[in-house]
Design a protein around this nucleic acid. Structure first.
Lengths: 228, 228
DNA sequence: CAATCAGTCAAGTTATTGATTGAATGATAA
DNA sequence: TTATCATTCAATCAATAACTTGACTGATTG
């Protein structure tokens, strides 16, 4: 090694390059929800199986995800380094300096939810004094792999049918996969249109978990995934 | 725009790609020290002029640096988004998950400085009660563009000649450009060998500044750079 | 033990990227 | 105004990356 400093920068750059691909970031977000098979991840992102597999291996080599075998399938989940923190820093930087990101966010998301989201701290306080209830609009399987404590799960697709389960006298705080997850934006828009008092949680499940906060009862993964 | 989420990930990825190149990260570190001309940055990194110029433009388009003209030269400095924070997150992730990084750090740096570095908080406390003095081992021009308050500047190259200026009864805390800047490691090793009680500051000047802490009297840039 | 299923690997194509060279700007100095 | 200096632009080439296709591997299931 001629120059250790150059060498270090090269290492950093290698990691950054792994994040330098939209499809990989998307895979990473899905893997951050809990364990997922390659096939599932390929579906979720719309990538071909081989392509998703290859991207996942790139992510794994960089430690962003880890994998284990369960029967004939291989399950990927987030690695155990400060991945969420790194992605958060990237997001915050992007929001600060890329007009495009701000533009997309405001053009698209803010059209759906013009009101400011609720922070984690504010949520905890409101839950403590009973002035709000938590709504998880992710699909059931993601919910089963872990969720915020006390959250009610109504997948976005089922919302219309299950309105009866929602309180009309308490504020609702909805969340899903992360700051850019479309589900919670749309849930808020849909329910607000029906007169509910509903807000969006600023973060999603992965951020909550990464912050070391308690997560709801997690079904044993072993059981969940080896059954079929 | 078909899918705003995909679009956002693509934006993030674009930024990550900009950081995905060792030379750019190195340029960025130098630009983080203060304003620098393209020629100077090219020298510092050993890149050809045109190449450095092109990399700097890539960095600028992503907002990591900004530039202004001063006479016939163009000066680059760090952009005003949370760049240092992002780089810090990248570094922390790398240290956590890349054996190579840990290896390089321990093989090379720790050979020079086996003792744990001093944190910002610890430094402030020691400076307050007078139990330590601050040593900035960067070149004079970098020091002039900004430094930690109360620091004594002895560029690494001059250390041997200016030993008389250093106290033998107080602990010395040395710092330079950042966590991986070689100067402070070598200064600590050199002075410790001579019997000085010296430690390394965990961070460097850019991190200090990014944390919003006060920096030493900055010479007016206008004056400094248009003179010649 | 064959058949099947989930994922990986290897090879090839096309598109991007990084570096070099030399010409073109744009500002100052003679 | 011309000459000079610092930087950028444009063209080029080699290296790398993303995606596809089809063959391969390893673990079940019949």
């Amino acid at each position: 090694m001629i120059n250790p400093k150059t060498e270090i920068f090269e290492q950093f750059a290698e990691l950054a390059r792994v994040l330098g691909q939209g499809n990989r970031l998307e895979l990473l977000e899905h893997a951050a929800q809990g364990e997922r098979s390659v096939e599932r991840l390929a579906q979720l992102t719309g990538l071909s199986l081989a392509n998703a597999s290859q991207h996942l291996q790139v992510l794994r080599r960089a430690g962003f995800v880890r994998s284990r075998r369960d029967g004939k399938r291989i399950l990927y989940q987030l690695g155990d380094g400060p991945v969420i923190e790194l992605l958060g820093a990237l997001r915050r930087y992007a929001e600060h300096s890329r007009a495009e990101v701000r533009g997309i966010v405001s053009d698209y998301f803010n059209r759906l939810d013009s009101l400011e989201p609720v922070s984690r701290e504010a949520l905890v306080k409101r839950l403590d004094d009973g002035s709000a209830m938590l709504l998880d609009v992710r699909p059931e399987d993601e919910f089963a792999l872990g969720h915020l404590p006390g959250a009610l799960n109504i997948p976005f697709a089922d919302l219309e049918r299950r309105l009866a389960e929602l309180p009309t006298d308490t504020q609702i705080v909805a969340y899903c996969r992360g700051p850019y997850c479309v589900l919670s934006f749309e849930a808020v828009a849909a329910l607000r249109a029906k007169g509910y008092d509903i807000k969006r949680l600023e973060d999603g499940f992965p951020e909550w978990k990464a912050a070391g906060l308690p997560t709801g009862p997690t079904i044993e993964r072993q059981q969940l995934t080896s059954r079929r």
